[in-house]
Design a protein around this nucleic acid. Sequence first.
DNA 1: TGCGGCTATTG
DNA 2: CACAATAGCCGCAG
Length: 586
Amino acid sequence: MSDADPGVLEELRRAGVNRGDLVALAVAPGIGLGMATPDGSLSVAFAVDDPSGVVHLIERALRPRWVMWSNETAAILANAGVRVATSWDIAAVRRLLFGGWRADPACVWAQLHDLTLDTIPKIAPPDLFNQFDDDTRDPADPDGPLRRDGHLSPEWVNGGWRESPERLGRWAQLASVVVTRQQIALAELRDSPAAAATARSESAAELLCAELSIDGLPMDRTVAEELVADIIGPRPRSDAEAAEQRAARDIEVLRHAPLGAGADLRSPGQVKSLLRGIGIEVPDTRAWRLETMRDAHPLIGALLAWRKAERFATTYGYAWIDEHLAGDSRLRGTWTGSDGAAGRMTASAGLHNMPADMRVAVIADPGHVFVRADLGQIEPRVLAAVSGDRALARATVEDDMYAPVAQQLGVDRATAKVAVLGAMYGQTTGHGAHALRRLESAYPVAMSYLADADLAAQGSRALRTYGGRLIPMGTTNANEMSERDARGQAAARGRYGRNALVQGAAAEFFKLWAVTVRARGATVNARIVLCLHDELLVHAPADHGDAVGQLLADCLQEAAHRWAPDNSVRFVADISVIRRWSDAKD
DNA sequence: TGCGGCTATTG
DNA sequence: CACAATAGCCGCAG
């Protein structure tokens, strides 16, 4: 650790930095570190090999809220083993305020300074453009981060900010300017009083994402490979052998076809022709459709089995294991805190859509357990909370809220469930239509909340979730399509908007729960290893298994109280302590 | 080579 | 077979 450390801590103290105060941070390993406070009381920059070490020191002494341009900073810290408690993630807050996906510094800066996004300068080819570049520079500060037109310099944005300690200091200063403007913008959202709280939990979720990407999901390679072998056979030793296995799988289906009828089973069109050859006419060849005609011809069953094997061969086979499962028995993907639409967490490497069969290979380390918890009926409970429907809220006192809803509607439970889900997804036709009318009279507040969202989205008007996240509604070019198509598109937007408010609020609540668990679990070495929309998988020392289970339940109540302070809606979770993910009962 | 369509998996 | 996502392969346009 550098000699500068005690000094910098003193400087923060002198500047009056306390627990939870905003301190903007820019780090570049091997170069240095810059820090600044929004009120200008502190601005430091110095060279240091391991900036994360300095951050760690300050974190232990003061625990400020670290302002970061994006979770790249969180990743640098976490890679160095430094896990800060709280942050203000500028990119995450930008997505909250303005929706969409783009959140790079140039874009954030422009938007908060009322500059149009299409005037953002792009990086120029070095030799061609240098002569013109001078025109845009600020004569008083030619190498500075700001251009005369107010935009950030593309040279700075594209890595120039980390070239020297001085530049890191200025980069942190700019971040501290941005955070103040973001706070003002959040406060101006009068219809979304929760927005500032959402900004903090979404920021913490970015810290969690950086850690999830680094930690990975415990997975036993031997068990995973055995499972793959059971389904598609042993690992091929050459490309030729792989092709042989592939052909052998194809034969198992094609031997049921009329003599000479060949088809590429990977081509939906050719499969349709193949089926026509055995007297089966279908609009598409999806599994649920073929399942209903399994008895019609032995080829159908063979084809469905082929599909399952093919899925493992192409997506979750040996190549997937080799690419994503590291030597330390961790399956790693890249996590993002908020997708473009409704704000759910997403992950690559198939972490969110891994076949359930693969869960047998997700095994806790020796001496450890998984504590798994999944929220029960999260979307209808969230609907009750965000719409403020007292009648629907009363139903949430039950573990199974569909039971009282069914009683209220005078229908059976299955019908009630389909009706509620249909209302949230926008189904207006078919079997659900009758029960939907009953729903409207029993829960008018919740149903009109959904209908309003539907109507606004149909009119391409942007929406905000309960937590304040903007759901932008793209306008489609209606004069390029028929009247019928235009109506279909509007209806699709309506369904999308209706669902986005429920799914989006549920995602925000889930993240608040997750970051609460992250904060409280640290003291017993409990680490979240998977977030699955309404389910948390926590890896913890076996001795603490039951305590962590209780902690997950406590954190849920804490999150519920902070998120919807009137406590009218009850949230429930199913919690179990297990050694393998597949041991959880569903 | 890029992209829309189809398919499968998860919540 | 509604809402969301990631991911692979095929077929077609350029």
